[in-house]
Design a protein around this nucleic acid. Structure first.
Lengths: 223, 223
DNA sequence: AAAAAATATCAAAAAATTATGAAAAAAGAA
DNA sequence: TTCTTTTTTCATAATTTTTTGATATTTTTT
């Protein structure tokens, strides 16, 4: 669940944004000025900060600069949300380290879409991992770990396991497997899948992959 | 040097943006419509695409969707740049996979600041120095030190090592490596990567880089 | 229970892929 | 140019992965 910090000196705006972002499923904290925003940022480590430019105590640009000096917050997105539309303010905001500068007024739905675009990009880096039973299958690292111990899986075995594990308990017919792993051009004998399945079972144990005779295989995930 | 693709059906805008972005030090290619944009994107692998929404042949949103389906372009930033300001168009644009939606007219300096903000964020992930195991890899100086002892690495070897070491344990496919180190224009034989890998291994030892047969290589960082 | 059908298993063969050394080609420097 | 370094290619060896084929076992059908 992503955490958002909103810093604005107008209570109405704060309340409105908080209400709507919570409704979207975000965890929201608020601050009324720059100093407070910094304090909350240090302790709550939000994933994204919506920052007003004009605030008492410390303005948004200065706040942004300070946040960027903090190593622990370097992955935090900062978006300015301000009524001030002059070029130089926008440029100053972006150059102080913000990721975006949005001029108010902005439609709520548009703002939410922009926020989601940032998170989508961030999540992309995190990679394709499947956590299932005592396994961690990591497609980016091309590893399968069982109880923290990494095992080596050659290409075909990895692809087959990944396919089955990506939809636990779903039955994959032999045809589906052939099509996905080998494609339409390559034709291999009937025993090829079996042998690969056996090799996976050798490494991970016999219980994980279940045979449905006459049909196919499935990754069994009933505790 | 970052590559930017601009897609717009108005030649004046295209020319204006190209001129100014080149002046900023970017490598700029252009396209007059969506279909053309796709073609250029596939071959040139830009780091960022400025996309108009209304274009003949294929509109921007459809273009964006198609780009996002391409694995090789998943790290490419997409920014819509459009005169259409309605909420739903902006939302549709962002939901089609774009990173930002900027409503025209926009001041050139502001646009450039936003573009730089994206690149800053992307580069931040990389960093110019890597400390890993007994190695210090310094991109500014183009040197690799093993146990404080500096070793000489020619360009290609260095880039390859840097790429692998920048994301320890991540698997890089041969295609990814070719794209990043050689680019799409240059075509080299199948054994070229192997030879470079061997040279790196000669200098640093055989254990650092691990081969995943049929897939690629990775920098191994387990102790 | 027997026959039929499908999968499991093993070792060996085949195929695919990478490692390696040396040399040619290309790029840079003097 | 000439020399040096870097990059790429090529042929062959070494290795790993994938597939096959024979036989055993299990499940389903009759």
């Amino acid at each position: 669940m992503k955490k958002i910090l909103i810093a604005d000196d107008e209570p109405d705006i704060l309340e409105f944004l908080k209400y709507n972002l919570v409704k979207e499923g975000f965890e929201v904290s608020t601050a009324n000025n720059g100093v407070e925003a910094l304090k909350v940022a240090y302790s709550a480590h939000p994933d994204l900060i919506l920052l007003d430019v004009m605030m008492p105590e410390m303005d948004g640009i200065e706040t942004c600069r300070k946040i960027r000096e903090t190593a622990a917050l370097k992955n935090t997105f900062i978006i300015f949300l301000s009524a001030r539309a002059e070029d130089y303010t926008q440029i100053a905001g972006l150059e102080s380290g913000a990721d975006d500068y949005i001029v108010k007024p902005v439609k709520l739905r548009v703002l939410i879409s922009k926020i989601k675009a940032f998170f989508r990009r961030a999540e992309e880096q995190e990679g394709n991992k499947i956590f299932i039973k005592e396994l961690i299958i990591d497609k980016d690292k091309y590893t399968v770990a069982k109880n923290k111990k990494e095992l080596h899986f050659p290409k075909k075995e990895f692809e087959l396991l990944f396919m089955l594990a990506s939809k636990p308990n779903k039955l994959f017919t032999r045809d589906e497997i052939y099509n996905k792993i080998w494609g339409n051009e390559i034709i291999v004998g009937d025993r090829t899948i079996d042998v690969h399945i056996r090799k996976i079972r050798d490494k991970l144990g016999d219980d994980l992959i279940k045979t449905i005779k006459g049909v196919g295989y499935k990754f069994d995930n009933h505790e």
